[in-house]
Design a protein around this nucleic acid. Structure first.
Length: 512
DNA sequence: GTCCCGCGGGGAC
DNA sequence: CTCGGACACATTCGG
DNA sequence: CCGAATGTGTCCGAGGTCCCCGCGGGAC
């Protein structure tokens, strides 16, 4: 039994049409019931994650498409084969080669199929169903308990493989899936809280909480099986080759078999974290520039699975085998103590803190309330310089605003970033009217406005920028509120933002 | 013919 | 990465 | 006492910043 693209596209279209999760679930379940051997492929496409992580094809390449075919018989496997071919293309002439494959594939697709494939390749499926809904649907289609399906998905790191096992072998087959050294596990994620006090009461509810120093690096899940070490990124890509020194460090640990969770980060000789940009750069450059490893969890140790053990137990074992690499922490029920720890680690250059329930298991793949992060928040009053028309459910509203800081010398405003975050529907409606009033010019989907409206922006920090003229950009900017009590002349200055940049000390920029 | 730069794709946060 | 909206389910409120 | 309102857990999608690499085309 094989699945035809048309059927998948029909359910995708139906998914987009309804907002009911239950209905989405039954639509997907019905499709999976007919998918036969193509369950995994169907799930990969429905969750907008084709096997081929990189096809080299996106928005730009798909600008001009051939005429849709009036009749089609495209199968999922044929699509998969075309994606394989795309992924294999490299070297001189690659652009033309990809265009040829795309032209052939799309020429065999109907209009609806073209739209679907295009959305899939661009990564903008927007049918209101991804991993969460699909996992639910897999449980329904297979008759397996949702909790069992979820757990299998977390342990295999793959919804599609889980789906194939569930539909093929049912609950008993799913239950045979266990934590396996060498197979990436979905990493446990943290929710967030606005303050230490909130986090401590939310997580601890009166009891003691575990407070970890939060490292602003790149997540790494490390599997050690004697001398064989594999390192997985947060999305479970294999990054072993680009982190040789990390692999060596783990090889030297006094354990045979382990799965460790931690963060990779570039630091100066004193151990102080370097800006995230530096660690990102070093990691991407295949091990150019040393990075160090900071650990905060242990999922498996020498034949013993620890994911269901309490956090405190796991960390106890971790400290035993890798003490010096474990991140700083305190255990307390006192929000004041946690607060002081937070201040200390932030002063030392770390990102903040993660508050953890002491007895929480390792609940992979879920952004639960067992781990809650808190980071310091910066704030600035900036001027709106332009706005962009929104897309998707923000179509028809002026959404993404361009932010400017005041240049005290010239009196002009220099752009330091954009944001679309923090706006309620009400604010969206207000700002589209407001910025249309202030409109000065248009260019594509951006509306340039007179620099008259001040907005209070929250952000995590500033970073060095090559794109923006002031040389700085905001990280994670979001709107707090519009300020009608301030004139643009009272907005915060670009110099003020620049002063928040960590001063690079060239002596310190050494490998550790 | 080579080098460099711009741009697109893809991945971190 | 952040945030708001929406849905599903649990709990509490009000006639 | 039961239906309606309110609260909670989760998911999704709106798009941000940076980085690197590879390809292609223009400058020299």
């Amino acid at each position: 039994m094989t699945l035809v693209l048309t059927d998948l596209v029909a359910t995708s279209t139906a998914l987009a049409r309804t907002s009911s999760r239950l209905e989405k679930r039954s639509l997907i379940a019905a499709l999976l019931g007919t998918a036969g051997d193509d369950v995994a492929l169907a799930v990969d496409y429905l969750t907008a994650s084709p096997r081929q992580r990189r096809t080299g094809v996106s928005y730009r390449t798909l600008g001009s498409l051939p005429e849709p075919a009036p009749v089609t018989s495209l199968t999922l496997r044929q699509v998969d084969a075309a994606f394989d071919a795309l992924a294999a293309v490299q070297g001189s002439g690659a652009v033309a080669a990809r265009a040829a494959i795309v032209g052939d594939l799309f020429g065999r697709a109907s209009a609806d199929e073209q739209a679907f494939l295009r959305a899939l390749l661009i990564g903008e499926l927007r049918q209101g169903a991804l991993d969460g809904v699909v996992v639910d649907a897999v449980a329904h289609a297979s008759g397996c308990p949702l909790a069992v399906v979820r757990r299998a998905a977390m342990l295999t790191g793959s919804v599609s493989r889980t789906a194939a096992v569930a539909l093929g072998g049912g609950t008993s087959a799913l239950e045979q899936i266990t934590l396996t050294v060498g197979v990436g596990v979905l990493p446990m994620l943290a929710g967030s809280a606005p303050s230490i006090a909130a986090a401590v009461t939310q997580v601890g509810d009166g009891a003691s909480v575990w407070v970890d120093c939060k490292v602003d690096g790149i997540r790494a899940q490390i599997h050690k099986d004697d001398n064989v070490v594999r390192i997985f990124s947060r999305t479970l890509d294999d990054w072993t080759d680009r982190l040789p020194e990390v692999a060596d460090a783990v090889r030297r640990l006094p354990v045979d078999v382990a799965i460790i969770d931690g963060e990779v980060i570039a630091r100066d000789v004193s151990g102080r974290p370097l800006p995230f940009q530096e660690t990102g750069s070093r990691v991407a450059r295949q091990g150019a520039g040393a990075v160090s490893l900071m650990l905060f969890d242990l999922l498996h140790l020498d034949g013993r699975d620890l994911i269901d053990e309490p956090h405190a137990t796991r960390i106890g074992e971790l400290a035993r085998i890798a003490g010096p690499l474990v991140v700083d922490h305190v255990v307390t029920a006192d929000a004041g103590v946690a607060e002081r720890f937070f201040e200390t680690v932030v002063a030392a250059g770390f990102e903040g803190v993660v508050v953890k329930r002491v007895d929480a298991p390792y609940a992979a793949g879920r952004r639960g309330s067992d781990w809650v992060k808190v980071k310091p928040v910066r704030t600035a009053d900036l001027v709106v310089l332009g706005v962009e028309w929104g897309s998707g459910r923000r179509r028809g509203t002026l959404s993404n605003i361009h932010l400017g800081a005041r240049d005290a010398e010239t009196g002009e405003y220099v752009m330091v970033g954009k944001t679309f975050k923090g706006m309620t529907d009400e604010m969206l409606a207000w700002q589209t009217a407001r910025f249309l009033e202030l409109e000065r010019d248009r260019e594509g989907h951006v509306v340039w406005v007179q620099p008259a409206q001040v907005v209070e922006i929250a952000f995590d920090g500033v970073q060095r920028s090559r794109r923006y003229p002031g040389g700085v950009a905001l990280r994670f900017a979001r709107v707090l509120r519009y300020r009608d009590d301030k004139t643009p002349q009272e907005a915060d200055t670009i110099d003020g933002l620049r002063s928040m940049l960590a001063e690079p000390d060239s002596r310190d920029l050494q490998d550790v």
